[in-house]
Design a protein around this nucleic acid. Structure first.
Ligand SMILES: NC(=O)c1ccc[n+]([C@@H]2O[C@H](COP(=O)([O-])OP(=O)(O)OC[C@H]3O[C@@H](n4cnc5c(N)ncnc54)[C@H](O)[C@@H]3O)[C@@H](O)[C@H]2O)c1
Ligand SMILES: NC(=O)c1ccc[n+]([C@@H]2O[C@H](COP(=O)([O-])OP(=O)(O)OC[C@H]3O[C@@H](n4cnc5c(N)ncnc54)[C@H](O)[C@@H]3O)[C@@H](O)[C@H]2O)c1
Lengths: 204, 204
DNA sequence: ATTTTATTGAGAAAATTTTCACAATAATAT
DNA sequence: ATATTATTGTGAAAATTTTCTCAATAAAAT
């Protein structure tokens, strides 16, 4: 029913709705929102229907109602604490991203094994990995962003799992072995760039 | 036939094969590679079959042969030049990523409208956007990474398209309007983190 | 009030993706 | 040499996702 791919679209609708609302709109039709999110109108309606979200026949959907429904589904009523493992180029960039706090995702701390990276006055505090348990417990963190080098990814993942992390956004180009109750979402920017080259026909 | 989703898997196989080769292996079975890439053995075989890649019945696949086939498909015989538009946190992090040159993707330049960002001695040269055409022509660039703020994304995209870019890896959380002959690959890290939270059940 | 119109909601159909099942066959064992 | 075994390759089946269709219906027009 609620597949991995569907949630991606729902979150895109949410983004689109926020944008449309900022533009002063109050109502939206499946067709409009579909265009905003790059999806067919039928699929927009089917997605909402699957999640029990109702519109008004002929009237379209009320943007505020839709946003409320979506924000209930995606827990936007509560701030979610997140940690970053590996404060190199990627980790640092992500730690400064305004989009996260704007969306109730609060990066509480970064961790690194490199002593030179620790305690550098930064957007967020950076600790040695020894402090992981302490912070995870104190802030009730259950989600982490993994931004360590490929070679260290599995061992870092094991550490995160040991201290109770249940979701890992993995930026390292490796498949992590985790227990069944832990979810990994892999984002591989190299693969995305390679795919783009292939599909844009520049490799011919 | 060659869908968007399939290329993602092929590139994961490629990554897995490189890793297995580094570990000293010379042959691989669909089952092994599938485990490495998080895919069923049948699907591995079907994917290869669809792209006309052959193994040896009972003997499995020869890793070097497979890599050759894949590198032919993904043009790894030639270096591809890429530019980055927007040299803020994200753009800078990406410009320093070793993985790109290691995979024959050569980041030739970054562009920014902020004068303070220009010509700072950096991994790669950073130019004002006025120099875009010149660099794109000189280096025959057809693919760009877009890392400007959401508000500037469409206008930057228009500029890239005007000067002949055919593929855009878009990190900004907006859907770009581009002509039919231009391909956009959207990577939205916020959506990926939100999705992870949803699917790891931490929002309940 | 009644008719017309635009849009949702959902079941059915189509398309796509994944798995199943097994014949073909190459390597190994007897 | 022959039999056994493991693995590929691929059509067929199953599952999933997307599109098609159209009845239901709320808003707007008459
Ligand atoms: N930089 C990019 O643009 C980019 C793009 C795509 C993917 N990635 C991937 O993201 C990951 C991070 O890339 P990066 O460029 O930030 O690398 P980086 O080398 O700049 O940073 C890695 C950081 O991790 C730390 N680290 C190493 N081992 C650790 C451990 N066991 N525990 C905690 N910290 C540890 C290092 O000290 C360093 O600070 C890599 O896996 C890379 O492949 C990066
Ligand atoms: N930083 C992150 O971790 C992160 C994560 C996810 C998504 N993103 C997205 O990536 C994009 C870049 O994020 P960032 O954090 O690097 O932002 P940033 O503000 O650090 O950098 C943006 C850069 O773009 C430049 N710029 C602005 N308008 C421009 C224009 N018209 N032409 C050329 N350059 C221009 C700015 O001068 C700045 O240097 C944003 O769209 C953001 O939403 C960033």
């Amino acid at each position: 029913m609620s597949t991995f791919i569907q949630t991606k679209r729902l979150l895109k609708y949410r983004m689109g709705l926020i944008r449309l609302k900022q533009m002063g709109l109050e109502k939206v039709f499946s067709y409009t929102l579909g265009k905003e999110a790059g999806v067919s109108a039928e699929l927009v309606r089917k997605d909402f229907s699957n999640f029990g979200i109702k519109g008004n026949r002929r009237g379209g959907y009320d943007i505020d109602d839709l946003l409320n429904s979506l924000e209930k589904i995606f827990g936007k009523d509560r701030v979610q604490n997140v940690v970053i493992m590996g404060m190199g180029n990627m980790g640092k960039a992500l730690s400064q991203y305004r989009g996260f706090p704007d969306n109730k995702m609060n990066i509480v701390a970064g961790f690194d094994i490199d002593p030179a990276k620790i305690n550098k006055k930064f957007q967020i505090p950076i600790y040695p990995v020894e402090n992981l348990k302490e912070i995870v417990d104190a802030f009730h963190v259950s989600v982490a962003i993994l931004a360590v080098p490929e070679i260290a990814a599995q061992e870092s993942s094991d550490l995160l799992v040991r201290y109770g992390i249940k979701g890992i956004l993995n930026l390292a180009p490796v498949l992590l072995k985790v227990p069944d109750d832990v979810v990994v979402n892999n984002v591989n920017l190299m693969v995305e760039l390679e795919r783009l080259m292939y599909h844009s026909g520049v490799l011919k």
